[in-house]
Design a protein around this nucleic acid. Structure first.
Lengths: 221, 221, 221, 221
DNA sequence: TATGAATGAGCATTCATTCAT
DNA sequence: CATGAATGAATGCTCATTCAT
């Protein structure tokens, strides 16, 4: 079902088909509940071939994580134009992030849910991507502080905590946006920028963060 | 291991022992990877007794979720003194939340990671607690808006998104705080209040949210 | 459910309650599928009491077989008036047999189906009752031969085979009569007498066996 | 045991081996008491293979019933030469029936004992074969009535009862013949023809049904 | 390159049976 | 007399993994 069952195709292609099937299955069923049988069938190949190419269930799962992690990181990177002010960079990164997770729900499920719930080998793998994200956000915060001409005297751990919080909020909103019909990536990003940049206190005073150009993205107030 | 292996104890007691063992095992291994054998052994009873009292693996897992959910909700509720200004209430709730999750890592793992990764029966169960939390935060936001004498005309979906983001950030920080040695519940809560209340923008300007003084900050109990 | 749950009753009574429950359960579920739990509950007693009184599942089943066998034999015996001509005795025996099996379907299931399908201990038990029936029929045949003033020169094995056939037909008709609504014990007995006494050949020639008194019992022809 | 334990054989062959083992085990132990472990071992394969090919214990049992039912029906059909007088057809059918059941005691046990004792799915399956047999006998009776130049006005239910009785007697005699050493299929058939065709009454008068001479009695094959 | 055939090991679940009170 | 508490031993079933071709 799905791929046309043509024999003899180059290894690289076959491998991608397998990974596609695996990401989908792992993302929907979870690591343990996904069976190699199901993955092989979905990929349109025999089980031994899966083992020949990807060695074991563990390795296959790891390969899925890596591929999806790379894709997500790449998407976010591609979305951010360097040289812009810090808040704009953040805004662009978030938009790209929400757009990608919305378009690849199974991959996001693998990264965000499945990989973290199954022991060290996988959690570590995913921690790396996350560290990347946190690093990006940390950098943005530091740059922002510099732009504000304040000595970057925010304690390091404090910054780490803030970055964590922002990334966590983003991850959480990704699930929320995917589950709430009609919420676009831009809207999710706007909500989060409002929250993270202006803060609830400012919001209450009627001073939201101003989103760039497309004014429709966030309610005026 | 631990408790003296005394035979013949009343059902209620045994049931708690089993739930303890189950939460620990599920929290560390995940739902599928946890085996009833392991749980029974950890509880110091035979497998049939587990089935006699808790029916099935599914029911056992559900019972774990319910117990931990109730405990967490109760802890947060007990930590919040009503009547205080909105930001104080939020602060107290967060502190209680971080304190509880730090003290019950396995329970938190069950609620935050495991329950959400395994199909509808469980995800729904946990969604309820989360809805509770989001409702609490939403209420705080609405009250805060009223206190700021602004008409509470923030669009509903916007508020929902903000609450989601805050709760998500909190969940994320809980993991971070647990994993980073030396971060206390109060520090985690302070970081999050800074982030959520003042916002990164204000922070950059050197206007953080002011945490209450240590002495009066924590409820008498 | 069923018996009023009054404590402290004489052993004999309790035992009968247990056997009632057991016959019903074994008859409907089969030996292996019936669980001691279910039987105890249906009998309104605790499981250890069942064991105290009846030792084991095997013994309980054996007790059921014996009780039902005795009841069936007694019913048939009570139905036959000695001194009558052979065919009348057979007729009466069959009527009693069909009446009893119709009134005690679970007991009949235990004897006819369940006991024979589960290894030697039980099959032997039931073989005894059957031998009784076969002996009764054999005697009737021998008497009939004597009445017909023929030397009883039918070979013994032949007689044994005939008796077997008759009993087998009766058993089979019992199931048929129970399953076919509107077939009474007398009708079943009449059908069988017709078949067994007159034979298909004679029947075809329009010479059925004549049932006693109640002419309605079998169609005239 | 028996077959050389050669690995790697085509699926169809293995399936027959499994069915052989299953029929034997089910026939001797009963459905519930038979364990998949035992069947697999007797078949000389591992348990998973049994499941791979036959899905479940229930399906396996059903497959056994179907195979044995088909074999029995085929044997009886092959034994009856159409065009002969009714009593001859009956005689041939019975001979074939007794011969087959004697040669396949386990299969017969599955059909006659085990399948009927365990719930609807199986009982229904076996009821079909039996209906076939009853239909065959019914047809014979109707044909016999026509041959005797009597209007075939025997009431339908009466005929049904007679056919039931005859089939029941045959089933019963099959067990008897198998259990009594030295009783051949022909002898069993002769006894039953005597009983069913001539009837006890005629027999008493010294007018048995005449079995055909040995030579022509059995179909050429 | 690709697969049909096959399995060791484990897992959730059930049941007959027994103590200790 | 009666039972709540507890278990050893199976049993049906699944899955990741590997040969032999």
């Amino acid at each position: 079902m799905g791929a046309v069952k043509s024999k003899r195709m180059p290894r690289a292609v076959r491998e991608q088909q397998m990974l596609d099937a695996a990401v989908r299955t792992f993302g929907q069923r979870g690591y343990r509940a996904a069976s190699m049988d199901e993955i092989a069938e979905l990929a349109g190949v025999s089980k031994p071939l899966v083992y020949l190419y990807l060695n074991s269930k563990e390795d296959l799962f790891t390969a899925c994580i890596r591929r999806e992690a790379k894709a997500l990181t790449a998407a976010v990177r591609a979305g951010v134009r360097p040289g812009l002010p810090a808040d704009r960079q953040l805004w662009e990164g978030l938009t790209a992030f929400f757009a990608h997770t919305a378009q690849h729900p199974d991959g996001w499920s693998v990264l965000h849910l499945q990989a973290r719930t199954h022991g060290e080998p996988f959690a570590a793998e995913v921690a790396e991507v996350r560290a990347d994200m946190v690093a990006f956000v940390t950098e943005v915060i530091v740059v922002a502080a510099r732009e504000a001409r304040r000595d970057p005297s925010l304690p390091e751990r404090e910054v780490a905590g803030l970055a964590e919080a922002l990334v966590g909020a983003a991850e959480s909103l990704a699930a929320w946006a995917n589950a709430t019909p009609g919420v676009t990536a831009r809207q999710a990003a706007a909500t989060l920028m409002n929250f993270a940049w202006a803060g609830l206190g400012e919001l209450m005073e009627g001073r939201p963060w101003a989103p760039p150009s497309e004014v429709e993205a966030v309610p005026a107030r």
